[in-house]
Structures are given as C-alpha cells and as structure tokens.
Design a protein around this nucleic acid. Structure first.
Length: 657
DNA sequence: CCGGAAGTTGCTCTA
DNA sequence: ATAGAGCAACTTCCG
C-alpha cells in the first residue's frame, strides 16, 4: 500500500497552548496533509468530576484563546470542540475523516490512563498510528518513578535524586509559525448520548445543561461552549485563563528579577490578596496554557544572572515545580487509590470523622460519606461555607469560593484546621471541596497536599499545628485580609480581629456586628450584623487532635491494610479515642449485625455504615491507653500494592479539570 | 545498624 | 522588634 499523506487529529486535553508543545511539534513533524485540532467534550468531567463555574469559565477562556491563536496562524483552522466522549467519538472520527495519525500529550492521571488505553486500542484496530509525547511536567512521571526504584516519590530528596538520573529538563520548543488546514468536517455518524447519572455538577447549574444537544454545538460550527450552553451559574472569579494572559503573566514575573530570584515560599504572605504574594501561574499550568518547562528555564536564566541573596530548592520557584512533579510521580504508580485512603499503600489510616463511603465492587470512594456524628457534619458545613467563627479560616474559605484561588499557606491553614488541627475530619472531605472550587485543581497536587497537611503521607510533624490566630498575625497584624473577605468584621479593633468573640459587647455594638449564633443569621434588627461564635475552643481541639494522631501513628495502619477494609482496625483503638473509632464495642456490634445478616459478605467498606445512629462521644480528651505497641518502628509493608492496573467498573470521582 | 541532622512553610516565651 | 530556645516528637536521610 502506498503511504498516504498523513491526516492527523491533534487531541487536546492538558495542553491548551501553541508554545513549547512537544506533542504539537510531533504532529507537525508528520508534515500532515490536514490537521484537526480536536477537543472532546467529555461527560466524565461534565457530570462526574466536581467542577464549579469558576473553573468551567477558566477552561472556556483557555479554549477560546487557543482557538483564536490557531485561527491567527491559519484562518481555516480553529479548535474543534465536539460534544461526545472520546471513547466513543474518536473511532468514528477516524473513519469519517480518514485519519491516519492521532497525536496527544501524555496524561498520567488515573482516569486519563484508562481512557487513553481504551482509545489507543481502538486506534490500533482502525489502523491509526498513535503518537504520545510528554509535556505536562518537567519530567515524565513514569520515568521519575522508574528512576526512584519503581516507587512513588514521597519526598523532594527522592525527586531530586531520581531527576539527576534523567538529566536536565528539556528546553522549550518554539511556537509554530503556521498550521496545516483541517480537512472536511462532516460528521456523518450517530451521536452517542452520555448518561448524566449521577450528575455531581447539578448544583453548579441554574438552567438545563445542553452540552450534548448537537455534536458540533448549537451553531453547528464546533465553537467553544458558552456558560449558558452548559447551563452553568455565572463565574464569580476575576482570574481569567488563556495562553495569551499566561505568557503575559510569566513575562511580568520574570522581568521582576529580584522577585523571581529571591522568591521563597515560606516567606510569602498568605494574607496578601491584591496583589497576591505568589505567582498565580498554577491554573495556567493546570490547563496547559503555560508550559512548566518554559517557566522552569525562564527562572533558571534569571537565577544564572542574579547573584545576591538567591533562594534555593526547595523553597524557591524551581522547588515549587519539583513539588508538582513529586505529586505527579507519587500518583502515577498508585492510580485511583492515590486520591483516597482505602487501598492506598502510601497513605496512613486515621479514623477521621466523616469517612468516605466505599464501593465494595471496585474499592473506590463513591463521593458520599458517613455521618458518624452530627457535630462533625455541622463543623464540616461551617468550614466549607466560611462560618466557623474563626475569621482567618472563614475569610480564606470565602475567598476560595468567590475567587477559586487562595495562597498555598492559606490552603495549609484551612486544611490543618479541618483535619489534624481542629475538626479531625477526613481529608477526603476537604479535597472534594477544593476539587469543586479551585480554578487550579490538579488531582495529583490536591490530594497529595491534603495528605501532606493531614500528616497521612509526605509529612509527619503533626505537633506543628497552625493556629487560626497566631499564624495570620505574622503577616497581617491589622487583619486587612479578614476585613476584606469578612466585611461584617471590618470595623473591629485590630486587637480582636482574629478573635472577635473576645471583644466586649460595647466594642461589638460600636463595630456594628455582634458575635452571635452559628452563622445562619447574618443580620438583625436595625441593620446590625452577626458573625458566628467560634464553633469550638481551638486550643482544646488542638490538644485532642494531636493526641489522637499520635495514637493513630502508634497503631500504624496504612490504607491498604486488610484491617482497614474489613473494619477490624477498631480492635486497635480505644473505645473513647477521638474520631470514628467507637473501639471494640462498635466492633462487637458490627459482628452481631453481620451475624443477623448471615451469609452476607462484609461490606468492603470501612465497617462503619451500620452504626450511623450510634454517635461516639466526642470532645473528651483521651490518651489512647490501650495503644498497640509504644514504638511504631519500621512499617512492615504488605506485598506489591504498587500498581493498580485492574479493571474498574463504576464511577470515578477524582480527576483533573 | 546506629546516631545525629534535616525536613518548603508552628507557637510561645525570653532576652 | 527580632532572634533563639524550648516545646513535643514524627520520618527520612546520610555518614
């Protein structure tokens, strides 16, 4: 057969840019007869991932800007957004458009791997050649893992050592100056409609979702969707996406050589908001509208030239990129379980309140959780909606909801507060809220950072606990950040801005805001404002949490332990320990229960679903007198839980977007 | 295998 | 104001 001229689909997912795109270069190197830049509007993200209006808007910004840039290079071309799942759509396009090559950027997220393997199998059957290039991280996560002895990277030292074996980071590739025409775009096939059930994004819409009405969009022209086509509520953030803005932002940062060369994360102020103290490049990296390698080499050039007072790895900007790579290479070999405790060989098991429900068929969390105590659920809701009564925490959570971005150390503060330093609530609850609201949500980085902050992986100094009062005072003694995001407190004296409940009633009245209730009522007679009372005594909770974590560390279970799955972990905790323990008595109750349901298999859950009504007593300080083994010693690993390449049915909750 | 130092990012008190 | 010690105590890294 004579070699035909290449007809190429360039499939976009994590790489909405023209600059430094190894995959796009590979596509152009084929010297194609025609090139179709295609985005498959994937129902997985529309219905199964949690995505609020701010991140949707950001994606549309990136797509629109990218499409316009393509059209500038070739007026006949654009980004072709096609409303169907890639798993069903692409194989039909191969045939309809006589495609010879499929090219895309490698994506090592769990869902993405499964999706891409599926598509590659279909391409092979259709005789379509597939080209995959890495371009999303500094190093290919799989290569980094290999260089780390096949293990997930769990510290920055490991990353640095593994990276050394791989050599220097690849240099950026120039932006193409022209693009081939697309071919004929007739869609001469049936439209496979997705099932919207379950639809986790229903709460993000105020009108009907019309994503899948027409394959090529409402105008039949493959246009980037609009918020109204998607039925989404309006975005509230001022942060906007797109390669043009990304390159401008990078340029601004790099041209400030002092800022770039002396940047040291721990010294940046989490209370700075206009402007913020960090780069805000993370959402651009997430959507691929800014290449991490371009950022890396731009920073390296500055560091080469700027001699005095340079910051170093891990606190400098290069270090920040290495942490990103660390999380990708920690996730890569673990797959879906990386984003949860159960089944995760590298995540400590701690009996948090509000644990996830787990699907016994595939061992994956379902997106719902157990309410072990109503009090914990109340705390969780007050945390999510910025009504804890701790102004620093509430201001951060309101900024997150409104703007989709908060400073890295602000994320530390609210994450520590929700988990090991306050509420003792499962980090998976917090990760889900971040997944919904962050414009830069990246599944590997988000879940990795939640594990870090909850001291379940990557980090273990749980006695270092963020105070919602002392911590923000260091960089914002006057409380300007709080006054902006919790405006009802704007006239409080500096002295009480982080602990308004300590203000005398006379001061509260003078400031026009009473400390009262749980946040449900925000205003009283005569226009007086209400700000909630603190939902607990922080110092008391900190002590309880630290003791409880210490105890859980001594018990020393990891997510892949059989005891975690079958509920027998309870044997190892005292009856009155903090968190979802309920000790041996609950275990006995579970056994009785199981006998009644004779013949039924263990639920495959954490063994807690039968006793939601039997709330443990909470709030008592306990010392865990019956802890198992005073010294944790070396962890004995179960054998080879390394890769998870099995077949999973059921729904997937966690992924990028 | 041991021991000491280090680990992106704590807080409080004292000098 | 700011630097350093002490607090309580985890894992990992390195010689």
């Amino acid at each position: 057969m004579a070699p035909s001229k290449p007809r190429v689909i360039y499939w976009l997912r994590t790489d909405l840019r023209l600059h430094d795109s190894p995959a796009l270069k590979a596509a152009l190197d084929l010297k194609p007869d025609c090139l179709y830049p295609v985005w498959c509007w994937d129902p997985h993200y529309v219905y199964r991932a949690r995505v609020g209006p701010n991140r949707w808007q950001y994606l549309l910004d990136c797509q629109s800007d990218f499409s316009a840039s393509i059209t500038k290079l070739n007026p006949k071309s654009k980004l072709f957004v096609i409303r169907e799942a890639p798993q069903t759509l692409l194989t039909k396009l191969f045939k309809a458009w006589k495609i010879t090559h499929l090219v895309f950027e490698k994506d090592t997220d769990a869902y993405a791997r499964e999706r891409d393997e599926n598509v590659m199998r279909q391409a092979k059957e259709a005789g379509v050649e597939v080209i995959v290039k890495m371009g999303r991280t500094l190093y290919d996560p799989d290569e980094l893992v290999k260089a780390n002895g096949g293990k997930p990277t769990m510290s920055i030292t490991q990353v640095q050592k593994a990276a050394e074996k791989l050599g220097v980071v690849a240099k950026p590739i120039p932006t193409p100056e022209s693009l081939p025409n697309p071919g004929d775009t007739a869609l001469d096939f049936d439209h496979t409609q997705p099932s919207p059930n379950p639809d986790f994004n229903d709460i993000q819409r105020d009108s009907k979702d019309k994503s899948y009405t027409n394959l090529s969009g409402p105008g039949g022209d493959f246009a980037v969707p609009t918020m109204s086509e998607l039925g989404l509520k309006r975005a509230t953030t001022q942060h906007r996406g797109g390669e043009t803005l990304a390159l401008k932002a990078l340029d601004d940062i790099i041209s400030n050589t002092k800022y770039t060369a002396t940047f040291s994360k721990p010294e940046t102020a989490p209370t700075a908001f206009s402007p913020q103290s960090t780069t805000l490049l993370s959402p651009h990296h997430h959507f691929g509208s800014l290449s991490v390698r371009l950022f890396y080499w731009s920073v390296m050039d500055v560091l080469k030239a700027y001699k005095s007072n340079q910051s170093t790895i891990p606190t400098n900007l290069i270090g920040q990129l290495l942490f990103r790579d660390m999380y990708f290479a920690a996730q890569a070999p673990l797959g879906y379980p990386f984003a949860q405790t159960v089944g995760n060989s590298h995540c400590r098991f701690i009996p948090w309140h509000l644990p996830s429900k787990v699907d016994p068929c595939n061992g994956l969390i379902t997106g719902e959780h157990h309410v072990d105590t109503p009090e914990a659920e109340t705390w969780f809701q007050r945390w999510k909606w910025g009504k804890t009564g701790f102004p620093w925490i509430d201001a951060l959570m309101r900024q997150l909801r409104q703007e989709g971005w908060i400073h890295h150390l602000g994320r530390h503060a609210v994450a520590c507060f929700l988990t090991r330093g306050g509420c003792y609530i499962d980090w998976e609850r917090g990760a889900e809220v971040f997944e919904e609201w962050l414009i830069d949500h990246e599944v590997a980085c988000n879940t990795g950072n939640w594990q870090w902050l909850s001291c379940t992986a990557f980090y273990s100094q749980f006695y270092r606990c963020y105070s919602p009062i002392a911590f923000p005072k260091k960089t914002d003694a006057k409380g300007e950040f709080v006054r902006h995001f919790c405006p009802e407190l704007k006239d409080y004296p500096d002295k009480f801005i982080y602990e308004p409940w300590k203000a005398p009633i006379a001061d509260q009245k003078k400031a026009g805001c009473l400390i009262k209730g749980d946040g449900d009522e925000t205003e009283g007679e005569g226009g007086v404002k209400f700000y909630p009372k603190p939902m607990f005594d922080f110092n008391v909770r900190r002590t309880i949490c630290i003791d409880a974590i210490k105890n859980a560390y001594h018990v020393n279970l990891y997510g892949d332990d059989a005891k975690v799955k079958d509920g027998t972990w309870r044997d190892l905790f005292s009856d009155n320990a903090e968190g979802l323990t309920e000790g041996k008595s609950a275990k006995d109750a579970m056994n009785r229960n199981n006998k009644v349901k004779s013949g039924e298999e263990a639920s495959g859950d954490t063994g807690v679903d039968q006793d939601e009504g039997e709330a443990a007593e909470v709030g008592e300080e306990t010392k865990g007198e019956d802890r198992q083994g005073k010294s944790p010693g070396k962890r004995k690993r179960g054998k080879g839980q390394g890769t998870l390449d099995g077949h999973f049915g059921g729904r997937r909750l966690r992924d990028k977007h």
